[in-house]
Design a protein around this nucleic acid. Structure first.
Length: 575
DNA sequence: GCCGTTTTCGGCCCGACTGTTTTCAGTCG
């Protein structure tokens, strides 16, 4: 269903988890984790590599290469199956709960036979954890809070996972004879940060071949419903996919209807009613007599309602109808407008890929400029030093302009300390072309302190971008508590951009905060924070999020020509 | 299990924070 590399990454990560849970060699578990990440971030398809080719991937040795080959050939790995037989799948789910790791998950299973999140919640309720060594009252509270966070995601899946699944299905279905159009719709087309299920729409005269094709996909685990108008399946990954087939002349109405949102559609249908019309997934009809007046394209449907075509990312009933009626819809930023990525890593810190390869891949995307921003020393696990970063600068300078004239900016991702201070003194920072600053620790310092901390970072004349400003992890960790309006005002006042981090588990800032920040006059940077070549493509999710925040190219500093960008980066004129 | 030698073993990202302990284990980034 997903890329083979990601399938293998998930498998190796699962094996690593199982080793950790069963109390295996810690370094062995870590080796599998490292290899999992390396394979997930490897640009070439691992299902086309032999053992020798696999071993060229850093972190993959003889043993892991053999297991990958075994998986590609047979779809399974014997030793992983053996481990799975020892530990119920539910025990592994327990370690998805923040603050609960492999050791205590195993203790819960061994001592209380707990093997699901629900059982754990019940056991806490029944005060069964009290007598367990290593568990106390605070631990119970933390676990319950973690479970609540997990459930908040409500079974929704990350945007990127849904996108990969959907695109694969659309590609497959488009090949079927008689398919005039095929596309995904729903919250996925609107680029919501998480997606409940995947809606696929087909335009064709006969529906049966498409319905059958969906139920027969290799990744289909269960057929939920199978009819002539609609078929629903659940994939092996647990994602529900709904397929609808409409007649080709109803394509536009179908897409409009199935893209939603519900709130947006209520508005469009109300407008139709006032015009003496009725809007459904089959078209726009006259109430009297039922003559069809529009249905072939979305543009046609919107036009007949007196509206311009509205980008799907705006269809949330957040004012887009009114703006459309007034002819004041924003020209939202698109992926094509982005001239460069301003927050990326290399293998000098926690990235997977050497500088030269990241730069070449960025140039291949057609960027005019590209910033390399590895971690700074205070994130001690990354072991950055003055010497290392200065040596990197030399390499960056020597590559500058060498790929299709793409310009390179040498930067860093600074750590905003508890008091708002950053890693290096002003003088040293002035040597960088660009500085991203982000919170990586002390997430719960309290609202007032956190606000001060972020404002102080904005006021630093060398800080250009606040990276992943709320530090949230979707379904895992809430954003830090700060008076964001005060932070947004500080950004606008000091000429500091807010990042829209495109990592699918971050999407930070999120759409609602962007809408607020925009009113303060803040500028934004849509960045991937890429740690490998494939992650450069996460840009689309950042752009989708920016669109949901109604941003135009003028709001986004990395759509600007380099000259204008440099003026912004100079901040107080000192760089 | 991987890797790079000081080349077939011995290190491997290291420190902070939390809560449970009474000196430390587990978790996280």
């Amino acid at each position: 269903m997903v890329r083979p590399n990601e399938e293998v990454e998930a498998l190796l990560q699962e094996y690593a988890d199982l080793i950790a849970i069963t109390g295996g060699e810690a370094f062995k578990a870590r080796a599998y984790e490292k290899a999992a990440r390396a394979i997930g971030g490897h640009p070439a398809d691992v299902s086309h590599l032999d053992a020798a080719g696999l071993r060229k991937i850093p972190g993959v040795g003889r043993s892991i290469a053999e297991k990958v080959v075994e998986y590609v050939r047979t779809g399974r790995v014997a030793v992983v199956e053996e481990k799975r037989a020892l530990i119920p799948a539910g025990v592994r789910e327990l370690i998805a709960i923040p603050t609960l790791g492999p050791k205590r998950a195993m203790a819960l299973y061994e001592d209380l036979h707990i093997s699901s999140v629900d059982q754990l919640a019940d056991a806490i309720e029944a005060e069964k954890l009290r007598d367990l060594k290593g568990f106390g009252e605070r631990t119970e509270e933390n676990i319950l809070h973690g479970i609540a966070l997990l459930r908040q995601a409500g079974g929704r899946i990350p945007l990127s996972t849904a996108m990969e699944t959907a695109e694969e299905i659309v590609t497959g279905i488009s090949l079927i004879t008689g398919c005039e159009h095929c596309a995904y719709a729903g919250s996925l087309r609107r680029m919501r940060e998480t997606v409940g299920d995947i809606d696929i729409l087909v335009a064709a005269r006969r529906s049966a071949p498409f319905m059958d094709a969906l139920t027969e996909l290799p990744s289909t685990a269960e057929v939920v419903a199978h009819g002539t108008k609609k078929t629903s399946i659940r994939t092996v990954d647990g994602v529900q996919v709904d397929l609808r087939v409409v007649r080709p002349d109803a394509w536009g109405a179908g897409m409009q209807y199935f893209t939603g949102s519900k709130a947006h559609n209520i508005r469009t249908r109300t407008i139709a009613v006032h015009l003496g019309l009725k809007l459904s997934e089959y078209g726009l009809f006259e109430t009297e007599g039922g003559r069809r007046v529009a249905s072939r394209s979305e543009e046609e449907v919107y036009a007949r309602l007196g509206l311009p075509w509205i980008p799907p990312t705006l269809r949330e009933d957040r004012g887009e109808i009114e703006a459309g009626l007034r002819g004041e819809l924003p020209e939202v930023v698109t992926e094509r407008d982005i001239r460069g990525d301003l927050h990326t890593h290399t293998d000098l810190t926690d990235g997977l890929t050497p500088l030269e390869e990241m730069v070449a891949a960025a140039a291949a995307r057609g960027y005019a400029y590209y910033a390399v921003t590895d971690h700074a020393p205070n994130l001690s696990m990354e072991r950055m030093t003055d010497e290392k970063v200065l040596a990197q600068r030399e390499r960056v300078r020597s590559l500058d302009g060498k790929h299709h004239g793409m310009r390179l900016l040498h930067g860093t991702e600074l750590n905003i300390g508890p008091g708002g201070e950053v890693d290096w003194p002003d003088e040293f920072l002035r040597g960088f072309d660009i500085c991203v600053a982000a919170v990586h620790s002390h997430f719960t310092a309290g609202r007032a302190a956190t606000t001060r901390r972020l404002v102080r970072a904005c006021e630093n004349p060398q800080v250009n971008i606040i990276g992943h400003p709320t530090t949230r992890l979707l379904g895992k960790r809430p954003g830090i508590d700060a008076d964001l309006d005060e932070v947004f005002a500080a950004c606008a006042r000091t000429g500091t951009a807010l990042e829209i981090n495109a990592q699918p588990d971050r999407l930070d800032l999120g759409d609602e905060d962007i809408l607020r920040a925009r009113h303060h006059g803040v500028r934004f940077a849509v960045d991937t924070d890429a740690h490998s070549i494939p992650q450069l493509a996460y840009l689309r999710y950042g752009v989708g999020t920016a669109q949901r925040g109604w941003l135009t190219p003028d709001d986004v500093i990395n759509t600007w020509p380099l000259r204008r960008l440099r003026r912004f980066l100079a901040k107080d004129g000192r760089r």
